[in-house]
Every structure is written in C-alpha cells, then in structure tokens.
Design a protein around this nucleic acid. Structure first.
Length: 579
RNA sequence: GCUGAUGUGGCUUAGCAGGUAAAGCACUGCCUUGGUAAGGCAGAGAUCACGGGUUCGAGUCCCGUCAUCAGCUCCA
C-alpha cells in the first residue's frame, strides 16, 4: 500500500510558528537578513537566510534569548491576504520572496502573517494563534549550515539555522539526551574502539578491514552464500576493470564518466567498474540460452569504485570503494513478477535476521532516462504489483529511478535517525537491448530477456556500518569477532584456562584467553568493553571441580557449569543466529 | 564540490593574554596472586596534520593545502 506520512499537525504548526519567531529574532539582531523559507522538519524547524555575516555557534544564546523575549511578549499571529502586486511591493528588497510570490499558482491567494506590528513574513500558514501558545515549548538552536537556495547547487548558498523544537522542555531534553546516547554507537567511534576497520588519510573513502571487522564481514558473506544457494543463485566474479567501449555500450560512460576512475592500458581507456552489471551481462552473452535456463540468477560479490565528492564521505556509510552483494536475474516477461517477489521476500528475511526495521520506496522514471514509455510503464507496474501482492507498505519517489529503469529501495536507519538505502531491486529493459541479449523461446524464436539488478545488503560496507550502530558494537554470537574469552583468576589457573581455550578452539569457536597477571575485575572490565559475548572465569574452585563459571550479556555469574554443556549452548546460539 | 567547524603521543583530552608541551587510558618493567567493570611503583612514548608567513620567539596569530565532522548538493 502506498503510504502517506502521518503528521502531528499541531506540533508542525507550532514549529512553523517558532520559525517565524526565529526569523523575527534574526531580523532584529541582524537587520540585513534576507529571509527565504523556514519549514517544520522531523525534530524541529529551520530557517534559511541570506546574510553576509556568518553566524557562529557563540551567537546561538543571543538569538535564543531574543526568541524568548518575542514569545514572552505574547503577540498574536495575524493573517492578512494581500494582492500579488502588494506582496511584490512589500518584499521588493528580497529577491527570494519575490521569486516565491511569482511562482505561486495564479489561483492561489497570497497571504502574509504578522507577528506583532513590526514583523511580517510571506506565508500560507497556518500558525498558532499567539506566541502565548508557544510558551511551554522547548527549543534549541543546534547548528548553522550552508544550504543552497531551492536545493540547487547552481544557486547561492544560504545560511540555514537549525533548531530543535518539542512540545515541552522535557521532550526537548529527552531528544538531546537520545542524540548524545546515539553518538556512542557511531560506526566510526566503535569501528576504532573495537578495531573493526580504519580509514586512512592515504585513501579517503577507501576502508581498511582489520582482523575483527574481517570476521564480521566474512560471516555476512558466508550467510549470504548460504541463502543464495538455497534461493537458486549461481555465483560469478567479473573483472575490476573493463574497457571504455563496454561502459559506452552500457550507457554508464554517458551518465557517470565523471564519477568513474579510469586508466590507460595499451592506448585504450579502461574504467574501474562502478557497477557489476556489464560484467554480468558479458557472462550471460558467453553462451546461447534457452527459455529452459531462465530465470538465470547470477550473484556476484563485486568490489566497485565510485568517485564521491569529498564532502559526501562518512565512516562506512558513504565510501568510495565498496562491495555490492549484487545479483542479476535474466528472465522472461512472465517471470518478472515472481522474481521480484522472490527478491523482496529474501530482503525481508535477511533484515529480520539482524533485527532491522526498514521501509521501502518505489522510484519512478527520471528525466534523463533511456527507453520507451511503454517499457517504463510496464516495469513500474511490475514493481508496484509485487509490492501490493506482498502487502508491503512503501512510499513513492516520482522521478527518482535509475536512468535504465524504475526501482524499489529498502532503507535502514542509523543511530541518529538518518536513513540509508541498502537493498534495492531495479528492473532493466535497457541493458538487454543495448547488449542484444537473447534466449531461444519455446517457439524456437529468439527473444529478449528482461533483467533485474538487485542487492540485499546493498554494500557490505554500509551494511556493516549500520550493523555496528544497530547492535552498538555488541554483535550477536554468530557475528562476534571474539565469541568467548577465558579469564584465569590467578597465575595458578593459567594452564587450566589454556586447556579450556584449546577445547573451545577445537570446536571451531573464536576464543581468546587472558592469563595476564591482573585482577579478575580488571580482566572482566576489559573483556566487556570489547563487547565479548561470553566470558569464562576459572579459579582454584573451578579447577578443583573441573567446571567453569561464565558471565555474559544480561547475567553476571553462573558457576559450576560443565564445559561440554556450554559448548552445546554456544553452538545452538550460533546456529539459530539468535539476536 | 559548497558553507561552517575541527585537526596536540596508539586512544580520549588539557594547554588559547604567543615564551620551545600536560594528564588519564593503552604500552614496558618491577611489586602484588587478588573471586566478577580499573591494585601499587617506575619507565618509555609528541619535530602539537602539512607547507608558508608575522614575531626576538608560534601548538597558540595570519594565509594555503590535506583530512575529519555537521549540513547542502550528489548517490548508477
């Protein structure tokens, strides 16, 4: 079902009214301020202004104080409908407002809102009645950033003042506390602390995987291979560089050559692959196909490189080289819907294993796209039908599809609530045409297959980044880099500790021992801060009775356990991928 | 790429009227052999991101470069 976002209208109205209060404060403090727009957003509101003076965070207090002054005056918000000409006259010194007025549909009334006699702003409303209605609200200016006028990098960059706003001061405090808490799970911070990955200035956006991160990554890959084998996929690997001719044929050269890394070999230009699909297509073309081969599902863990602008990089969530858990499915037209459903189902299953909640988005035909209207309509309908038949909720992004076809994206949320595209299913009528792919049908004639591009994790790198944040670094046992640590109480118990480690190791568990000359509290502290799921603690007592004591997440101490029982328990927990 | 901020030993940070670097953790050694989140002592470790400039003197001021962070733009 197509979703429309639900809104708390009262809160939104108040936030927008507070944006006017902010505007009034800014104009009174900085008379040269040119106001543009100031909408309510997820956690408050912002106002974009054009002002030569760069506002600094030190000035936030002053602005907030001014806002409080304005609110405490208790002035009313008063609407006044004006003619287009009057409006243009009122805002004749503000080219932004003039542009907005001129862009209003001719049949729409133009209105301004007064806040007191000395301030008005172009606005369709609605607003709260009076500033008195805002007195209980908690708000806090939290950042000042650049933002392009009307969201286009061709336009002037304005200053955007961001402000949190909630119905009560308590709700505001809670929100701020939540963000503070969220910072602790940041993939960059935990990646460093838990020694999962690093990014070096020698390669901005090109992540290095450290031994711990490599274990998580390989576990994800093992799981991926297992479920894809079950779902009837074959796995291939295609070259990291291919010549320019290929990228011209695929259309990527035209659309993305500025974002591709190239090199010259024997006088021919080669590009490092930014996508795996042309490689997959060449594999398909390597031999003739019968309708009996279809659907043909070919997976590839493909390392791709894309030039992302420097300001767009961030931890593992936005990088310049990443591994897509890609697959291309070649099929007949009447297999399309089932294949899409199969993939959606696979994504849903996988995300549940990690305890992720997600939302889906359907993106339709963009402006600079290839292909006929009929193909696009057909492809978009197929995706929509699959979503509807699976009763999955989704939002629609008009014009947001890939240049070769519409897509369904699956988005996950990071620690501070930003959403990231991970899984995606893209229908493609273009590549099969451009590469003249064929199969022989039941009728003995040649037909053109339809192609799906799809990823489940999206990029392993981004997915790992989100996993780190989702679990706050405390991975479930099957993913944990170190699953068990054996701690000896005194040096007398070191041999016993080592023998236990050996037995766990021989059972295939990832186990380490800590036999250093340190107090047990110290060793425990260190193991817990590294988020090791299970600790085994052995002293004279355990050694005498040939038992172990354990400590894990959610419980402090269980003693007198038999090692083999514990091993069974661990194996079961790993097998079921318990979270 | 754009706007703004930041950049001090492995990590987290202090030092900001400019006078040649401070602490905790981690590390090494010694003492301690201790039952569930930090035992004690000692030691080693930094050309203060890089390159210029101002100054008798720069981690501290100015300019440039690089990187990081937030947001914008972009994301096949």
């Amino acid at each position: 079902m197509e979703l429309k976002k639900e809104k708390d209208l009262e809160l939104e109205k108040a936030r927008h009214s507070l944006a006017h209060v902010l505007a009034k404060a800014l104009v009174s403090l900085y008379p040269d301020t040119k106001l543009t727009i100031g909408p309510a957003i997820e956690d408050g509101f912002y106002y974009d202004i054009d002002l030569d003076h760069s506002i600094t965070p030190e000035e936030f207090d002053k602005i907030e104080k001014k806002m409080k002054e304005i609110i405490n005056k208790g002035e009313n918000f008063v609407k006044k409908v004006v003619s287009r000409e009057e409006a243009l006259e009122l805002f004749k010194n503000n080219p932004y407002k003039e542009e907005l007025i001129n862009d209003l549909p001719l049949d729409e009334e133009v209105s301004i809102y007064y806040t007191g006699d000395d301030f008005f702003d172009l606005c369709r409303g609605p607003h709260v009645e009076s500033c008195r209605n805002l007195q209980n609200y908690g708000f806090k200016i939290h950042s000042i950033n650049g933002a392009y006028w009307r969201g286009s990098e061709k336009n002037k960059m304005l200053q955007r003042v961001y402000c949190y706003a909630y119905k009560t001061k308590k709700e505001l405090a809670d929100h701020i506390a939540m963000l503070e808490e969220a910072k602790k799970r940041d993939n960059r911070k935990l990646g460093k602390e838990l020694k999962l990955f690093m990014i070096s200035p020698e390669g901005p956006g090109f992540p290095f995987y450290l031994p711990n991160g490599m274990i998580v990554r390989n576990q994800l890959i093992d799981y991926w291979r297992e479920i894809h084998r079950e779902a009837g996929y074959k796995e291939i690997m295609t070259p990291i560089m291919l010549n320019r001719h290929l990228w011209e044929t695929s259309g990527h050269w035209d659309h993305y050559k500025d974002n591709m890394y190239t090199s010259i070999i024997d006088d021919d230009t080669y590009a490092i692959k930014p996508m795996n699909c042309p490689g997959g297509v060449l594999v398909y073309k390597n031999e003739p196909h019968s309708y009996r081969d279809l659907p043909l599902r070919m997976g590839e863990l493909g390392l791709v490189h894309r030039y992302e602008k420097s300001g767009e990089l961030g931890g593992l969530l936005r990088v310049r080289s990443f591994t897509q858990d890609d697959a291309h499915i070649f099929m007949t037209p009447n297999q399309v819907k089932d294949e899409i459903k199969g993939v959606v189902d696979l994504i849903d299953r996988v995300y549940k294993v990690f305890g992720f909640t997600y939302h889906a988005e359907l993106s339709t035909r963009p402006e600079n796209s290839m292909g006929s209207d009929e193909d696009w309509e057909l492809a978009t309908d197929a995706l929509r039908q699959a979503l509807d038949e699976l009763k999955l909720d989704y939002i629609v992004n008009e014009g947001d599809g890939a240049f070769y076809g519409p897509k369904i994206d699956f988005h996950l949320v990071d620690a501070i609530g930003r959403t990231w595209q991970c899984g995606t299913i893209q229908l493609d009528f273009q590549l099969p045409q451009r590469f003249e792919l064929e199969y022989v049908g039941e009728d003995g004639e040649k037909h053109r297959p339809i192609m799906i591009h799809r990823v489940i994790y999206g990029s392993l790198d981004r997915f790992i980044g989100l996993l780190i944040e989702n679990f706050a670094g405390a991975f479930p046992l099957w993913l944990a880099p170190e699953q068990v640590r054996v701690l000896s109480l005194t040096e007398r118990n070191n041999d016993y500790a080592e023998s236990i480690k050996k037995q766990l190791f021989n059972e295939g568990l990832r186990v380490e021992s800590d036999t250093r000359n340190e107090k047990i509290g110290y060793k425990i502290r260190e193991a817990l801060s590294m988020k090791v799921p299970y600790l085994i603690i052995v002293g004279d007592e355990e050694e005498k009775n040939n038992t172990i004591s354990i400590r894990g997440r959610g419980f402090e101490n269980k003693s007198g356990l038999i090692l083999s029982d514990f091993i069974d328990r661990l194996k079961n927990e790993i097998k079921t991928k318990k979270i």
